[in-house]
Design a binder for these strands. Structure first.
Lengths: 337, 337
DNA sequence: TTGTATGCGTTATCAC
DNA sequence: GTGATAACGCATACAA
């Protein structure tokens, strides 16, 4: 068993409160005799004293912990987000407790419940994205709360996300500008906010250019690699396949590339590709794939800023921040004009 | 403020202890009147009671939490490991608290200290890998403890890792079997266990085949993409560059591919590649890259098994488990014979 | 400058 | 069956 305040107290002959005061060192708050301090500090060192955080948290009714829930930590977007946010929080002397919801609203709900029961000082949730009732309840609990990425429009809470709509739109507008008219889309999980926004961006870009959105050019299922693989094959089986395809996520792209290889086709000679997300490998592929990059670091920084503001001013106006993604042109789109 | 036991007690007229008993429901332990139970359960429901985990943990001196520290959660190897381990632990009703050490031993040390102070029931550390004194101290504290991946040989603790030595060895033996003699290596951070083991595997494979390990064919710096890029360029500048290169990590490969593209060279026509690690994109590259895959899921499962065993039997013999990686042959190695 | 007493919310031991 | 009561380890208001 590790040393407690009372062990130091006994060893030095002082009381627990004196020991506590010395070890916490509120600047100039309580004056303690210098000799006393030295003895106590020495004893603490010798016993290897480490404060019991549980007891302290219970007493202070503060934890200096921020809870975070992500739908899939094995995806780089989220693990990187987690990393950067944790790093920022560290500067403010906050720890982060992350839970992986494994794309399951039930687990997400449990995670939030647990975090609330752990009395974290703030909560960041990247919702799985299909249900939000439990989030409403969480907001009611009054905890400083922030949704990220797969936000819900109706939720009365701060939020930060990437402008999925506009990102998709500039990607497709770029394809059109290069002379493409038969443009396909392979998107991800229906009903999720980013997916719907990306799809809408695609559709609006076509509409604006006077191009009809063909149903057969529209495939979807999930954001996974296997989905990309299957749907790409399906699209290639069409009598008049599209000349260019927009992918709603980097994993979809990966699967589509596999399908392309199997058909011995060449990008961009036979078909042009552009993807939402800019995974690390995109620029290393042959050819390097043009992409719409999400500003993850800015998202992380803004998240911390918003949450800390909410913690400092619980009654501040709700902010819903939308960050702009960036088009990165590489060599995967053929110029048709 | 959320409801406490005492709020339910006041509302129903029963005492705190009765309320606690009902809410914890030890099977057949304490008999409580059925009517009482119903009233209390109803009141709890109505007040939205959630037990305060901090108070409970303090009282029970158990947290049902496992701490985990990884050097870089944004790397897929670790984020995936975290995900799978957390999933397994969930089945045993344990939560996981993960911290990212950001490849910094100082942060790793702080993280461990904090986890210990939080009184987690067990601790899994994937060490940054350059220093281990603080790990020895951790072991002394008596907490069920496990190192993973970048283990230290001298540490008296359970450990689980991939056989980096053998993985590198079978990769290089494969290159030799295909007729290569001028074989380069670009490895990662010197002094870390996986790196040294992979390097030694490379060297021993050459030695066994009677091939001298040329110093100019050996480059290193870190496991990063940029390192791979620079070192590959350097190797290509040699008068007689190697005909095949073994990379100690998937990110290094990515950088090397970029260098290759810039020189307008072709894999495997001009040079052959094989890499340790099998990142998701390896099979989608052109050509698909042959690789040595780490059995991440087995590692995760074994980690949980070892830790739970240690928690159940603190005095069991120390186990150091080594799992075998697997050679995955794709199209990135030319047959020279 | 230091000590005493109290409470944070829970569970467990004991008595009734 | 149920209720007082005492910890768990810490930080603070108040006394001395």
């Amino acid at each position: 068993m590790s040393a407690r305040l009372i062990d130091i107290a006994r060893k030095t002959g002082y009381s627990v409160s004196t020991v506590s005061r010395v070890l916490n060192q509120k600047p100039g708050k309580y004056p303690v005799h210098e000799k006393t301090q030295k003895q106590i500090l020495a004893a603490a060192e010798e016993l290897g004293y480490r404060p019991n955080i549980i007891a302290r948290n219970l007493r202070l009714r503060k934890t200096r912990e921020i809870g975070m829930v992500v739908p899939d930590i094995s995806k780089r977007f989220f693990s990187f987000l987690v990393k950067i946010i944790a790093k920022h929080l560290r500067e403010f002397d906050y720890k982060m407790i992350v839970y992986d919801a494994d794309e399951d609203t039930g687990i997400e709900k449990d995670a939030i419940t647990n975090l609330l029961a752990k009395k974290v000082d703030g909560l960041i949730v990247c919702p799985v994205g299909v249900e939000s009732r439990h989030l409403e309840q969480t907001i009611q609990s009054g905890i400083p709360f922030l949704t990220m990425d797969r936000c819900f429009e109706h939720l009365k809470a701060d939020s930060i996300s990437v402008d999925n709509y506009n990102g998709a739109r500039i990607a497709v507008e770029y394809l059109i500008a290069e002379g493409h008219h038969k443009i396909g889309v392979i998107h991800g999980l229906q009903g999720t906010w980013p997916n719907e926004m990306r799809l809408k961006g695609y559709q609006d870009a076509l509409k604006q250019a006077g191009i009809k959105a063909e149903k057969r050019y529209n495939q979807c299922d999930s954001f996974g690699t296997f989905n990309g693989y299957l749907e790409m094959h399906q699209m290639l089986r069409l009598d008049d396949p599209p000349t260019a395809v927009f992918f709603a996520g980097g994993y979809i792209l990966l699967g589509a590339l596999k399908a392309i290889r199997e058909k011995n086709l060449n990008v961009p000679r036979d078909i042009s590709f552009i993807t939402f997300d800019d995974p690390t490998y995109a620029m290393q592929l042959t050819p390097p794939i043009s992409a719409v990059a999400q500003p993850i670091e800015e998202v992380a920084a803004m998240a911390v800023k918003l949450l800390l503001r909410r913690m400092a001013e619980p009654d501040a106006d709700i902010e819903n921040v939308l960050l702009q993604p960036q088009l990165i042109v590489r060599d995967s789109v053929a110029k048709l004009i």
